[in-house]
């Protein structure tokens, strides 16, 4: 179980890196487009459309990694008043609800792709993109997210019966320290001044 989860996290991180690179490439495309349009009167058509596809790609791929890193926000402030057993159950409940939501989304994303294929949709824009291409990538991202969420839920349920002490650490909201740590860079305090 642990091993599978670790593998999934590696895959999620790798996919996220590809998505991150896509953001940077989009930034470059947009810059070229603006310079071309404003100074040379030539435009790469449809960077807005490509941008939309990149967002769908980044968003759907980012959801899984965010889930594994407990980055989807929850409000846990009232948990301090609950007994530990209730807290653990609520952590698991949140995972179950998330898995349900993720599966619902993947199912409907799949349905949308089916509709696109049935209609043979091609965007009526200068790019004339066959819509199944970007939607196909998106559906893969949503299915990956759903699988990740289900796997995490099964894991949380298993922990509930085998190792309850681990639940809060693995499926509670991240501590503020964890949130902050990503902005603290020892040594960034410049080396060359």
């Amino acid at each position: 179980m642990e091993a599978i989860l670790r593998t999934v996290e590696h895959i999620a991180a790798a996919l996220a890196l590809v998505a991150g690179a896509a953001i940077a490439v989009l930034g470059a495309l947009i810059t070229i487009d603006i310079v071309g349009r404003d100074f040379f009167g030539a435009s790469i058509q449809g960077t807005d459309e490509i941008g939309g596809y990149v967002l769908a790609f980044v968003g759907s791929l980012g959801m899984a990694l965010t889930l594994l890193r407990r980055g989807h926000p929850r409000i846990e402030i009232f948990f301090r008043f609950f007994p530990q057993v209730l807290r653990d159950c609520l952590h698991v409940l949140a995972q179950i609800a998330m898995a349900g939501f993720a599966t619902f989304m993947a199912w409907h994303a799949w349905g949308e792709l089916q509709t696109t294929l049935r209609f043979g949709s091609i965007t009526n824009t200068p790019l004339q993109t066959p819509l199944w291409v970007p939607q196909g990538v998106w559906v893969i991202g949503m299915i990956f997210f759903a699988l990740t969420a289900c796997l995490a839920t099964v894991h949380a349920l298993v922990l509930l019966f085998t190792d309850r002490a681990a639940i809060e650490r693995r499926y509670g909201a991240p501590t503020v320290e964890e949130e902050v740590s990503q902005y603290v860079h020892p040594g960034a305090d410049d080396a060359r001044d």
């Binding site: 435009s43 058509q45 824009t125």
Partner: peptide, 26 residues
């Protein structure tokens, strides 16, 4: 040479044939 807002493919075809730069905007 002007930038003209376009929203469909055939509009962009017309604009390009007129020498304009179609800009797609929401």
């Amino acid at each position: 040479g002007m930038k003209v807002r376009s929203f469909t493919a055939s509009m962009s075809t017309l604009l390009e044939n007129l020498g304009a730069t179609p800009v797609t905007l929401s």
